[in-house]
Write a protein that binds this DNA or RNA. Structure first.
Lengths: 222, 222
DNA sequence: ACTGTTTTGTCGTGTACACGACATTATTTA
DNA sequence: TAAATAATGTCGTGTACACGACAAAACAGT
């Protein structure tokens, strides 16, 4: 299982201009860091997409965040100085700037502008994770999927034949993991929605009339 | 229903020294702000305890955070400038400093130290909300309660008769809301734990041998 | 083109837990 | 100290959904 609070991410991007940073290229599937690692660095994503997730003992995943260019990650250990609890894995080839924690601190002190952007990024994420949490307790699987699609639309949606198309290929497993459901449930619900004529599939990408039309499907309870 | 990610909060407190801030006293039950309000201010809690929560349409609550003295709140609207989605309600009588958003921005620019503390607070919260999210998908009610007790212990735990005592009076409803369960389930599970001799009640406060002893009760599944 | 692997679709079956309904006991408030 | 309100304890009953099992389809590698 895998969660994703990621869809709507901060619109505040930091330009890839961290001075004296070490820049590294990664391949799809590579880990920037894994849970258990010491965690002495802060990262800025320049290019690509990175999935930040946790792993429960039973092997369930919780995708905390999808990082996009301009976003800082690996901050969680800033206060605690403990080891990482999160996995950071590349979804595609990525370029990442990396600086040590204390250097990052200095940077923030000397660049109030960057500090403010970091604060805005964090704030935004906190809000979205909060939304997700609410979503979890309040909604059933169907509503969760619908809301997920709406959120995905705001990040990956493109216009296509006078409709909206979520322009990212995602498997049912991935979708399931984003909303804390099991794969079969997602398959069934997606099948229902398709049968109802609410969504269409264009090679693993989901298309629908409009976000509003989708939202109208959310039952009263949620 | 009501969630709480609050238990372990940032250890970074900001001294109540925001210049030119308006200081207000509140009574228990008062709202500092409610969802739907414009949200042009940032707050710093000087004294008391504040519950930050969301409300789902069906009336379910999700407690996002318990604010303690030295913590900043009301930030979520910093980037979006939209209306608030959160309720901030006093759990007891509180003293709160309040400054307008842009003044807060200026403050951050001129005081990198405060900016850093804010970043650390946010980071800490993000981590905890993430934990909660994982907790939600991976654990059943019993494990959620046990883990909640462990977390509560780190914040409110005191030593008492060579045992740990969570020194806050919480109703079953409140506990239920913290873990996204219904009240009856909490009553039952707490009853089980008591019958098993794992916990005791000392006027609405929960006591147990040790956090480790509690954690041992978490079943293998995770 | 052939074969292994991943993804999708569709069944049951089992179960955790929400929800309503009460009775009982605390805790406020008048 | 009575009356009202809130908190607890304990029942069913219903249901959403996880999980296992498998078949079919799509995709990838050689």
């Amino acid at each position: 299982m895998e969660l994703d609070n990621t869809e709507l991410l901060s619109h505040k991007k930091i330009n890839s201009c961290i001075p004296d940073s070490k820049i590294t290229q990664y391949q799809k599937g590579d880990f920037i860091f894994q849970a258990g690692a010491p965690g002495k660095n802060i990262y800025l994503l320049n290019k690509g997409r990175i999935k930040l997730y946790r792993l429960a003992p039973a092997g369930k995943k919780v995708t905390q965040w999808f990082c996009f260019p301009g976003e800082v990650f690996g901050l969680a250990e800033l206060p605690s100085k403990k080891e990482r609890t999160i996995y950071a894995q590349c979804c595609e080839s990525c370029e990442v700037s990396e600086i040590p924690l204390n250097q990052f601190r200095d940077l923030l002190s000397s660049s109030p502008d960057i500090a403010l952007q970091v604060i805005e990024q964090l704030t935004m994420r906190l809000k979205i994770v909060g939304d997700t949490l609410l979503n979890f307790t309040a909604d059933d699987s169907r509503s969760r999927i619908i809301k997920l699609l709406v959120r995905l639309n705001t990040r990956f949606g493109v216009s296509h034949n006078n409709r909206r198309l979520i322009d990212v290929a995602l498997t049912h497993k991935e979708l399931a993991d984003m909303i804390g459901a099991c794969r079969q449930t997602v398959t069934t619900i997606l099948g229902d929605l398709k049968r109802e004529g609410k969504i269409e599939f264009i090679n693993h990408r989901i298309s629908f009339r409009s976000p509003a039309a989708l939202e109208a499907l959310i039952d009263q309870r949620g």
